[in-house]
Write a protein that binds this DNA or RNA. Sequence first.
DNA 1: CACCCGTGGTA
DNA 2: TTACCAAGGGT
Length: 334
Amino acid sequence: MHPEAFREALVDWFSTHQKDYPWRRTKDPWAILVSEMMLQQTQVATVLDRGYFTRWMERFPTPADLAAADESEVLSLWEGLGYYNRARNLQSATVVIRDEHHGRFPRELSTIETLPGIGRYTAAAVYSFAFDKPAPLVDANVARVIARLYHFDQRIDTAAGQKFLWDTAAELLDQQRPRDFNSALMELGQAICKPRAPRCKECPVADWCQSFQQDRDPATLPIKKPKRETVLVDEHAIWSHRDDGAVLLQHESGTRRKGLWKLPLRSVESVSHLPVIYRSTYGITHHRVSLTVYQSDSSEKPRKDESWVPATDLPTTPMASPFRKALDKLLSSC
DNA sequence: CACCCGTGGTA
DNA sequence: TTACCAAGGGT
């Protein structure tokens, strides 16, 4: 592989096919960091079409604005995106920027990577996109592209597999235009070198692709460890409300959905005599949860870890999606 | 290294 | 409808 012609073909393709994202119209490291955090394990369409990025940047135009905010408001603006530790980590990062970097966004790659919630990928993304400085990066798109380019038929989710991907990304990187090159490699994975039905006939770098040249099936790569088997779980919640509010429970110990609110949960024995007023199923990690909501007795009062939430606060009280949907449905049918 | 963390789109 | 997948990081 002689990377020069590969780089040229890739960046040329990108120059005419790149999509117009708001975070590509700016060099503000804060805006770019926000986009990268939101895009972790999350599709572009979700972040863009549902308005998360725009709302966030309007409310928190600078790191200092986020550092000064209440966690409840932060989580409320993140509601529906999932992986809520991202939001808390992002706020923690702004506090570090304020208290340890004089309020200025760090410009060293190693310093950016020390910020909470920012790992090797996100640090390199901010470094190359905001400052156009050279750092290789590997996300799910790049991993797929490299695995197919080199027909890497071993697992990529091992130390050896990760080393191969990052070493290769470093070799390929165009030091003269790291911003465009990294963006191009990622967009190639998103638009052309797709997981299931790659569009090899439209690929600008098919000449350099071993999977394509050797007529292998690219859809078999990359290889990862099979996911855990799905575990079925039942959740039983109660709906206890009046016109002026409802009883909610804040997620406590443990880390799942920390800081968010949900309907109070009960044992199935304690609610089996109550009328069922809502059902849904949702997935969380490797669990498949069946949620059932029961109309509580009017005598039901909040337990010590539960709170009466006024109706006017319900829309801005951060809740995970399954409970937000339940609450919306129950409020509308009252 | 293994496992955990959410959600919505897509085939 | 189920299963896979996504601009990963922390523990």
